[in-house]
Design a protein around this nucleic acid. Structure first.
Lengths: 230, 230, 230, 230
DNA sequence: CATGAATGAGGGTTCATTCAT
DNA sequence: CATGAATGAACCCTCATTCAT
């Protein structure tokens, strides 16, 4: 039994297996995201997922302990990948206002290239300010700095987070509708900066600075989205 | 025979019956609101409702044709009652900025006295800008007027609606946490006015004007909430 | 209390009450028959009946102890009225063959004037030869006599009853379809007589003898049917 | 790796699975038939079926999309199996009269060996002459031919179908009662032939010709019936 | 060990019957 | 006392999870 097995090096075998595992995991997460984008995260059902990902029921439970775990996982995964893609762009900017403006614009504009990702984000709904949230954490530091420096009006951090959340969520929601103005993300960022206390002209200037689109090639999850859309 | 007697009794009987009917309807709506506030509107199940309202399965269907109908009904009912209570206050104000500020403050501050109502509102999530929405409609006219008059920055109506939605939703969400500043509603309204384009000092002045609390006594649904909380 | 009551003679009062009672009973039976004709007797629901008869739920149970009782009652009532109407016509006939032919023709042709009655009969389905059945009993004696006299082939009574049942049920069923030949009842009776053993020419001659239509005016239940059809 | 081994096992595995599937399907159909035989097809409820077949609720829906589908399926399945079993016997006969006589006898006599099947058939009730019916279709051609050839009296096809339906249904019904004459099926077929216009002596002769019993071994559904009865 | 058959709790709806008013 | 509100048993259907093969 198992005649040829010992010939192959064990580390190679396990590496291949781990790769396959990761690929399948992403297939499941991607399918879940697509379904969540359409019907909302709570409506993600195992039947839809295993049908969409062409996986057997039993296999699914090898990757996720429960449907709820999958739902949580896909949410954090989406947030993580968004951050990972936005970070390098924002990294080179010092001004917290511009950093936030860029963040808002970059994430909102996902709706233009990756509607599924944006729809999923919108379906997630209002982030819970009280619980730790990876996307909010991303903005938190800039808001604190901006307020401390007096660049933003003095206000509770929660309110500042609300402003940013609303700007991103609202813009993403609207941009999913093709009839919406193409620069809606910029206008939303501009309004957020005003809400944070920047003068109108400065808010406009910052929000209209040229900004490259995100490089999605690093994201396995979002690349999957693009493939589906083609 | 039976000439005069039945006239009053019948009238009385049907009146009493109608009253009881309405009371039961409100009990069901109130229970549904409470459950929706906790688990989200989509998770409202008939079992939970009839258990909470202490009504039999069969009775439920005498009041609502389906669970879906109940869910829709409770959402519109909550929105309607909010409007009905806010309207008389806002009615005496001409300035669209102040009208909106009052609206945002009044609705957000519901979280302080009627946490269940506010939680339900928050669970409803981001309103769909594209579909007609009774609460958004309430703000729409003021935003249009404010933009046309140049009191607000020129911007797409959708963006203005986003700003107001975000201010209300975010503030209500935060105010549900007892540790949140008591004037959070005012600060949120102020930030919204800034986002709409008002100068910072004017935004602050308008949003801190004295404002009476809503009169909730007219709302059977919300009064029910208070009773439940006691 | 009850000032004027004693003036009226009790027997008059009770007679009027009994009449009203009977009228309502017939309304309920008629409605049940109509519903049973459409959906089958088992599908007669109390809601449909009280809606159709414009009676309150509570009242219904004053007239029938249960829905099942109503269903049984309407079946026997229909059978009884059919017999009552057919009997006077058949009474003057001596030949068992002709008596049966007349019976088959009369009952089948109900479908032409009272489709609801016929549809109900058809929905009742095949009569149970083993249980006492009022309609079968009507035929039973003639079949026994006919067999004993040698006018019919010697055969088990059950078989003879089957022949008659089938002729009536089948003809009624077909005659409900307007495209069916108008003399289908006669042809069905003729075939039944052949099955019972009569020579073909005699079967035809007997089954084509002129036959008056039933007088339905005596039947409260069927008159109701006619009114509905108009 | 895994070169030759999996080929057979997979094949074998899926074959075994398909067999088990088919067995379960038959168990469900058989149970449904049994319940339908007792209470009538419309009264087949999922609870009774899964209890009777000792299957879980969820499993049931893996085999049938709905209870209605099961009810339809069991009716067509029963009809199909009857035809399939009767066909080879009738195939060798040319005379339409004898073909019909055999068909009537064979199907009726099911009541003697497979009372459940017969009871189900009886509960199905009078076949609808207007809708296509697999059992009626079986007789239709012979009747048309017989009438055209002048072997049967000239009559509407519907009437001829009624005669056959009545003969089968009535005989099956009666044969379910153990006290009924054992040759009731033959007598019923004989009467049907007379009704169709054959002379009495010929009807008798044809209907008493020796006839083998059906071979039920090919029918999984009916064999199941027998097992249940043991 | 990947599979998918089986499970059963849970959710939605209907309807005969009772009973306070 | 006629009424119709209230009841709850009985139905149908879905879906997350387990487990034998």
């Amino acid at each position: 039994m198992k005649k040829s097995a010992p010939i192959l090096p064990l580390d190679h075998r396990s590496r291949v297996a781990a790769e396959r595992r990761e690929k399948m995991r992403l297939r499941l997460l991607g399918t879940a995201m697509r379904i969540g984008a359409e019907k909302g995260p709570v409506a993600i059902s195992i039947d839809d997922v295993i049908l969409g990902a062409e996986v057997s029921r039993g296999s699914f439970y090898k990757y996720f302990p429960s449907v709820d775990a999958l739902i949580r996982e896909v949410a954090t995964q989406v947030a993580n990948e968004l951050i990972q893609m936005a970070e390098p762009v924002v990294l080179g900017i010092n001004d917290p206002a511009e950093r936030l403006s860029c963040g808002i614009r970059l994430v909102s504009r996902i709706a233009l290239t990756q509607p599924v990702v944006a729809a999923f984000l919108v379906q997630l709904g209002w982030p819970n300010v009280h619980k730790p949230d990876i996307l909010l954490d991303f903005a938190r530091r800039d808001l604190l700095v901006g307020i401390k420096l007096g660049r933003f009006t003095h206000m509770p951090l929660k309110l500042a987070l609300n402003i940013v959340s609303g700007a991103v969520l609202g813009a993403a929601h609207c941009l999913l509708d093709p009839s919406t103005e193409r620069n809606f993300a910029e206008l939303s960022a501009e309004a957020a900066l005003r809400a944070l206390g920047l003068p109108a002209n400065e808010a406009k200037e910052i929000s209209t600075r040229p900004l490259l689109d995100l490089d999605l090639s690093t994201s396995a999850l979002f690349r999957g989205d693009m493939l589906q859309i083609q």
